[in-house]
Simulated assay, not measured.
Amino acid sequence: MASIICLHTARVHVATFAALFGEAGFAGTVDHVVRPGLLARARASGAGAVRADLDRTVDDMAGADAVLCTCSTLGPLIDDLARTDPRLVRIDRPMMTRAATLGGAALVVICLDSTRAATLDLLHDIAAQKDVDLRAEPLLCAEAWPLFEAGRTDDFARALAAKVRHKVAQRQDLRSVVLAQASMMGAQDHLADIGLPVLSSPPLAVDRAIAIARS
């Protein structure tokens, strides 16, 4: 039976991803490992400060057929490890690949400044590889993050959606909205009527992890 391990930096993601794997019809086992300290240290000292700890954590997951890291801040480290361990899935890579195919101006919604460079670099790199004309327009929503940390996930989603709507009303050239962090998925439901594709990373990353686990 295929097995997948999800590495989270917030416990709230456990229920979200368990539900997504269920909705995707995955019949294998899905285990969840929560390491909030990885994100806290990466925000305080940079992602490099947790590289060794992340290496050890992934080594402990050697028995899984696929490993999905749901933290965008750790994304570049996961990409580095994936060069020699193809089981690893960076949470935002499948979404950024989809965004690159849409081209044009992409509104990239970010809450944590610690993930800003990693997110934009990934999107630009994928667009360049595909020879796509894409312009990333960052929208920083740092003021909404305390709502997520307080467990007020619906208020968090609504706050993000309100800011996105305001920006979309100002910009007629946007081709897509990219919700850069897994925690933002709830905002997608509040943006269904804006007339643009709104991309969220968890469903696409789950599909990718399942494909790897079954291969």
Rank of each mutant, 00 (worst) to 15 (best):
S3K: 09
S3L: 09
I5L: 12
L7F: 05
A10E: 12
R11P: 03
H13N: 11
T16F: 05
A18P: 10
A18W: 09
F21Y: 08
G22Y: 06
E23D: 12
T29H: 15
V34E: 09
G37T: 08
L39Q: 01
A40F: 13
A40Y: 14
R41M: 08
A42H: 02
S45H: 13
S45Q: 15
G46S: 14
G46C: 11
G48T: 07
R51S: 13
R51M: 13
L54T: 01
D55A: 15
V58L: 05
V58E: 00
D60L: 12
M61L: 15
M61N: 08
D65R: 06
L68S: 01
C71H: 05
C71P: 03
T73L: 05
P76W: 04
R83W: 11
D85A: 07
D85W: 02
R93W: 07
P94K: 03
M95L: 10
M96K: 12
A99Q: 03
A100V: 06
A106C: 11
V108K: 01
V108A: 06
I110Y: 03
I110E: 01
I110L: 07
D113V: 10
T115M: 07
L120P: 01
L120G: 02
L120V: 10
D125F: 06
Q129N: 14
D131C: 13
D133S: 14
A136G: 08
P138L: 10
L139W: 04
L140H: 12
A144C: 14
W145C: 06
P146C: 07
D155K: 06
D155G: 12
A157D: 06
A162V: 14
V164W: 00
H166N: 14
Q172R: 14
Q172L: 15
A180R: 01
M184N: 02
D189I: 14
H190M: 14
H190G: 11
L191T: 04
G195A: 08
L199Y: 06
L204Q: 06
A209K: 01
A209W: 01
A209T: 04
